[in-house]
């Protein structure tokens, strides 16, 4: 019979999960990391990572994900590819159920399920996904060579990826609902200095239209004035929503889908930690996710030591 119980299960394989995996494997804990697909999480959607310490020249998100995974594997990381759909954290041991109906159990659990891009929720968005609507500039920018694209958003991701898009597109229009950007200063400066990027301030996108693919978008500014902009594509980069469908949110005292924890990443349930973007917090950076992954394993180890052997 295959092994189904582990002292520690780590759920998710983004920076938090991989760092937790690294620490757990290196500490020789009886562990399993469950991942939905290949490792990396949202890092795989990032064109360029310029602020992860130890890489002074920067590196691609793809490359960083591969390095993190290789690092954890060097210590003997145990992984399973599965989609966990539900869990029972009231029992001892804690139980997880996968989409295939497989049951796994653990004494300690680290939740690193992360987050995914948020949708705008406007007409045409779902219909044209993959036909001009994209949530990943890194993936799809090469399809827009010498074309005009719109980017929606004003945070780091939107502004940085707008700059990335100018390597291919002839013109990038950034649409933001406020009159200032939220992105870090250095990212803003690069965008303002890029003559292929123009800005539409104080405006929201209300619809995406076209025949076979995206041809134009409808906009409304804060004064209520409506306009139409002809574009070949729209990149929606307006933030993230938690991957929390499989989590018992009420039990974890979550009000918004993100999981509240203390400084040591402990949730309200003994032996359950949360790390990375799924944690209820202000800052969502690769380096903070990694730091929380490490913290969570130390908290898990501490918890496991309190259990009768």
């Amino acid at each position: 019979m295959p092994k189904t119980h582990y002292d520690l299960i780590i759920l998710g394989s983004g920076p938090a999960g991989l760092t937790a995996g690294l620490y757990a494997a290196r500490a020789r804990l009886d562990h399993l990391l469950i991942e939905k697909g290949a490792a990396g999480g949202q890092v795989l959607l990032t064109d360029w990572v310029d602020n992860y310490p130890g890489f002074p020249d920067g590196l691609s998100g793809f490359e960083l994900a591969e390095k993190m995974e290789a690092h954890a594997r060097r210590f003997g990381l145990n992984t399973l590819i599965a989609n966990v759909v539900s869990m029972d954290l009231t029992q001892t041991p804690k139980r997880l159920t996968t989409e295939d109906g497989e049951e796994l159990s653990c004494d300690a659990l680290i939740i690193c399920t992360g987050a995914r891009p948020q949708l705008l929720g406007i007409p045409g968005e779902v219909e044209f996904t993959g036909k001009g609507v994209s949530y990943c500039a890194t993936c799809d920018a090469p399809f827009y060579r010498d074309m005009h694209v719109a980017v929606v958003g004003g945070g780091n991701t939107a502004v940085q990826e707008a700059a990335h898009l100018t390597k291919f597109a002839s013109r990038v229009t950034l649409i933001h609902r406020r009159d200032t950007l939220r992105a870090t200063k250095i990212v803003q400066e690069k965008a303002f200095a890029n003559d292929k990027i123009d800005f539409i301030w104080n405006s929201q996108i209300t619809a995406i239209e076209g025949e076979k693919g995206v041809e134009r978008i409808r906009l409304r500014d804060t004064a209520g004035k409506e306009s139409i902009l002809a574009v070949d594509g729209v990149f929606i980069l307006i933030g993230v929503v938690p991957n929390s469908e499989m989590l018992p949110l009420q039990l974890l005292q979550s009000e918004n889908g993100f999981i509240p924890t203390d400084n040591e990443t402990r949730t309200v349930i003994p032996g359950v930690m949360a790390a990375g973007d799924i944690r209820d917090k202000e800052v969502r950076q690769i380096v903070t996710g990694a730091g929380e992954g490490a913290t969570a394993v130390l908290a898990a180890e501490h918890y496991l030591n309190t259990l009768p052997s």
Binding site: K36, G37, A38, G40, V43, L44, L45, T46, G61, F62, A65, I81, C136, T138, C139, P142
Partner: peptide, 17 residues
């Protein structure tokens, strides 16, 4: 797919299955 596409890599193991 394309080699530079992260999500393409992410679904790789599932496609193989």
């Amino acid at each position: 797919w394309a080699p530079w596409c992260g999500p393409c890599k992410a679904i790789g193991p599932v496609i193989e299955d």
